[in-house]
């Protein structure tokens, strides 16, 4: 089965949910290792429209605050409430229980412009992984 998950240069992932046209968004394993010790997640308001690259959520870790950007333009249609009580899910299970919000892209085709798994791996290996945040 092909890898359906898509990735951004800012280390978000986007994967199809169980409902058509709806995608879950989270941060990659690389990103959670950089961020470490997530303490809070500021979840977006459901119904908000976010342009591509617009700030959709904020992750507060002990080290710093990290903005989470919308991988493509779209609408927030749900958030992972479990992160309110257990933000550590983002560190423990970034691709699973650590999803951040559910998103409906304005144009499904936009998703195809994002990197697939092998492309993201290459991106990381070529130095796309930003250095440690101070």
């Amino acid at each position: 089965m092909p890898e359906p998950r898509r990735y951004t240069r800012t280390h978000e992932w986007m994967a199809p949910s169980d409902t058509p046209e709806q995608w879950n968004v989270g941060i990659t394993d690389f990103a959670q290792k950089e961020v470490t010790d997530v303490v809070f997640v500021e979840l977006p308001k459901v119904g908000r429209q976010v342009p591509r690259g617009g700030e959709a959520a904020i992750i507060e870790s002990v080290k710093a605050a990290f903005s989470i950007y919308a991988p493509v333009g779209g609408t927030i249609i749900g958030v992972n409430q479990e992160l309110e009580s257990d933000p550590g899910l983002l560190n423990r299970d970034p691709y699973g229980k650590g999803w951040i919000f559910r998103f409906r892209p304005d144009h499904s085709a936009d998703v195809q412009s994002l990197m697939d798994g092998p492309a993201y791996e290459t991106f990381l290996q070529e130095g796309g992984g930003h250095p440690e945040h101070g």
Partner: peptide, 9 residues
């Protein structure tokens, strides 16, 4: 080094 494991740990 800013950290080895995590700041909280």
């Amino acid at each position: 080094p800013v950290r080895f494991s995590t700041i909280l740990e």
